[in-house]
Design a protein around this nucleic acid. Structure first.
Lengths: 340, 340
DNA sequence: ATGAAAGCGCTAACAG
DNA sequence: CTGTTAGCGCTTTCAT
């Protein structure tokens, strides 16, 4: 009942019979300390269960082993995986992470960004809600920032993103070759660089296939409603291409509830490969993104800046893998176009 | 090029022509400040883009609006969702979160737990790797802890978990009614309370159906190997029941690659409902857990403790929903048992 | 090799 | 109502 409070460096010093400076030196390996003293300090640390107060440490030293991470949505498996990989990389370098989710809301993102400053992080890794990200950065932000996955409208950031164009174009060509004449391309919003680049990629595919773009927003329910309206009509497309995971989920579900058979009635392809796309039957043609590599690269970029690396803003583009599967097999739409 | 450093409370005070104490009072709404002064302070804050240094604040005040969260694996959608909900609840109460993943490794969990102490959090919310969690807690840990989802062997923790027994028993009964005679129950490890309770629940189901338990560990590859061995044999069970998500994924995939048809050749049920289970055909019978409710409840419990609420350790059990779907329809195993 | 003391940014006491 | 001052736990000169 005396004082079971968390031990401070002073208590360690007293217990070891040394000064606090010596304790600090032992713990940080700074100055040289005699083996005898070091041993006594370590013993006291062990007995007290002392752990340094990282906040006080930073306050005095000015060095923060902390980086802030902002993602649009933690429940999106891709972002969760991104954070998980990041966390591991950070820990290996002795850094801690403060992770916040913007919940797909630009206003909330701005709020989080501002809030994060009170932690005085050494750097920031951000997957922005949308292209207007730069405008939401608190003025006078001086810590290094790496932007991942989605490219802001404004230039000047260190950047790591996936190479959307080629992968999308490959899907577009494939759909044409397989015999599709019309393809509805669906994405949340063209305000997101990924969606925009994917649309540009697929629609650039030469050939006799016509693409139409449809934006459905970020709300699954609303998206489904918009989609239902588009697919219920008479002029059903030969193929569907979903440009992001949320959209793909809503779209695939709708196709099922409409009783459309894949690929017999309609071909189906998706960006953002997820585990379930290999489990359904037929398996879905999809573009797999190198999420782990993106996280590792983001960390590498930030590390460089945090340790004083200067120079121009860097942009890294990572290649995607395209998996062609049953959902776009030749048997389907080809037959239909033959009948037309 | 003069000094673009992050502004301190002193700079704000100078700019506003007041003392630092007044600035602090304005920002924290502590003592009463004249409207005139308050206005000047706010103006200076705005112009400088000042944000309080939360670490220095805590150091002096002793009050930390910070809680640590430890989960076994951020890439598990269920835990990601848990964290996301938690983060939102915490923010509403003005708290920040430091989230760490133990990567399913008890040693790493112990390490993370110890590391978290250097943040001096006001509380901890933990989903433990396994039942031996209590032994990994740093000695002399004095902050309130809420344990979620998995129940430690040792008592004395505030606890919130799902009510596994009834839901599992319902699955067990259902499989019997539907005509299954033998059921292979598969889970990662009985060292996890959820798996244990689910096994006990399902095997308690009376009737003419025999259950067998199989532990497959946490590695998908290894799990698949063990499962393949069990399902390849002659005595194939009528039904499968996967007790957690990773296991379910591995098992479902294996069933597919073995060419077994659900439910004609074998019935299939799963705990840990995930989105894909409704997308496959036939849709899978599954137990849906109230993850958001669990997170909210965990936060509520911790809040109470952090604001000084005393008393005995509390245990909350949350009811699950059972969704019966095509994967356990009557047509399947019933026919088979009739043939036997 | 070791210790004394200053001070990081902030808030809590207290003085005015 | 406002300002002065002390000191939270720590690291860093700078003496010794």
């Amino acid at each position: 009942m005396s004082k079971p409070q968390t031990p401070s460096i002073r208590m360690v010093a007293e217990r070891a019979g040394v000064s606090v400076a010596t304790v600090s030196n032992v713990l940080n390996g700074k100055a040289s300390v005699s083996p005898d003293f070091a041993e006594r300090v370590l013993k006291a640390v062990r007995e007290l269960g002392y752990v340094v107060d990282i906040a006080a440490s930073r306050l005095r030293s000015g060095k923060a082993a902390l980086v802030g991470v902002v993602v649009p949505d933690l429940t999106n498996p891709m972002f969760a995986s991104f954070v998980s990989t990041l966390e591991h990389a950070a820990r290996l370098d002795g850094y801690d992470l403060v992770v916040v989710s913007a919940r797909n809301d630009p206003a909330e993102e701005a709020d989080r960004l501002s809030n994060l400053r009170s932690w005085r992080p050494a750097g920031l890794i951000v997957i922005p809600c949308d292209g207007a990200f730069a405008a939401r950065l608190p003025a006078g932000q001086s810590v290094p920032i790496v932007v991942a996955d989605r490219i802001p409208d404004a230039a000047g950031f260190d950047l790591v993103a996936v190479d959307n164009g080629p992968a999308s174009a490959a899907i577009g060509r494939h759909l044409g070759i397989v015999g599709c004449r019309t393809c509805l391309v669906v994405g949340s919003s063209l305000a997101i660089s990924n969606v925009r680049e994917r649309w540009e990629g697929v629609s650039s595919a030469s050939g006799s296939i016509a693409f139409e773009m449809l934006e459905v927003g970020f709300e699954p329910e609303a998206a489904t409603a918009v989609l239902a309206q588009h697919l219920g009509g008479a002029a059903r497309p030969d193929a569907l291409f979903a440009l992001d995971h949320m959209t793909s989920l809503a779209l695939y579900r709708l196709v099922g509830s409409l009783g459309l058979r894949i690929p017999d009635d309609i071909a189906y392809a998706s960006f953002d490969e997820m585990e379930w796309m290999r489990l359904v039957s037929p398996a879905l043609t999809a573009v797999r993104q190198p999420v782990e590599a993106m996280a590792d690269e983001a960390w590498a970029l930030l590390s460089r800046r945090m340790s004083g690396g200067g120079g121009e803003a860097v942009t890294q583009r990572l290649a995607c893998a395209v998996e062609f599967r049953g959902s776009t097999s030749r048997e389907g739409p080809a037959r239909r176009s033959a009948a037309a």
